[in-house]
């Protein structure tokens, strides 16, 4: 079982080394864990830090946004024949101890497994009231569109099998892609599961959504639209063959 950790990094010079160190310690009973950092045109020294610490990284000459960076990782996984790809944030929010749990769920036959903050109250993850309301709204919207509850649709800690790697390598939304892709995947008829994980407060850097008041509002409108459009435009895979 070959597992690839995809770590998108934009201006993460301070945290990327620790993230990679944590991943190098992680291991599986029946497989290997590799990682690749996707440096999304960072303006700080992320690239230099990667070279100095001999980190396996892909250097994007332009800033593509989180979706474009993550998709690069999926392409890398596809080209290098990985069985499972796991998205993992470069800012120290995610906990490498949960990797085996995610892999196990994939082995049970799920196509995509989401590490969720809200399935059980495992984590002491504190988020603002507004943020919780926003996430609840997205959950509800996904429920309406797909008839399935996803409790943490914005989680960036996700594992996928070969089928999904191929899907994502071919087609992936450019910015704020998480909730949108979940809808597409469920609509296509793939199996999605959520398992509880603990997430830490980000150690360094600022969330892309905390820079000003308008960003979260714009985010919610955009993501809501994206979900609805995905729900309306996606057809079940193999529906033509039946």
């Amino acid at each position: 079982m070959k597992v690839l950790m995809i770590i998108p990094a934009y201006n993460e010079e301070k945290s990327i080394v620790n993230t990679v160190k944590m991943l190098k310690k992680a291991s599986l009973k029946n497989g290997t864990i590799d990682y690749v950092v996707v440096n999304d045109g960072s303006r700080d020294n992320t690239k230099k830090v990667c070279i100095e610490n001999d980190i396996n990284f892909i250097d994007l000459p332009n800033n593509l946004g989180i979706g474009g960076a993550v998709q690069t990782g999926y392409k890398y996984a596809l080209y290098n024949d990985y069985d499972i790809a796991i998205q993992f944030d470069g800012d120290g929010q995610h906990d490498a101890n949960y990797i085996p749990n995610l892999v196990e769920e994939i082995e049970k036959g799920n196509d995509i497994v989401i590490g969720s903050r809200f399935v059980k109250e495992l984590s002491e993850f504190k988020s603002t009231f507004i943020r919780r309301v926003g996430i609840k709204w997205l959950s509800l919207l996904i429920k309406i569109c797909t008839r399935k509850w996803i409790y943490d649709p914005t989680s960036g800690f996700r594992a996928c099998n070969r089928k999904i790697i191929k899907e994502f390598a071919t087609d992936y939304p450019i910015d704020y892609p998480e909730p949108d892709t979940i809808v597409t995947i469920i609509k296509k008829g793939y199996k999605v599961n959520e398992i509880p994980v603990k997430m830490n407060e980000r150690t360094d850097g600022v969330s892309s959504l905390n820079t000003n008041i308008f960003k979260p509002i714009y985010y919610m409108i955009k993501v809501s639209f994206a979900i609805i459009i995905s729900a309306l435009s996606t057809k079940k895979v193999g529906a033509k063959d039946e």
Partner: peptide
């Protein structure tokens, strides 16, 4: 986007 991604992977 595609060019940037492929260039990055090629560089790697």
């Amino acid at each position: 986007n595609v060019l940037t991604q492929e260039l990055g992977i090629l560089n790697n």
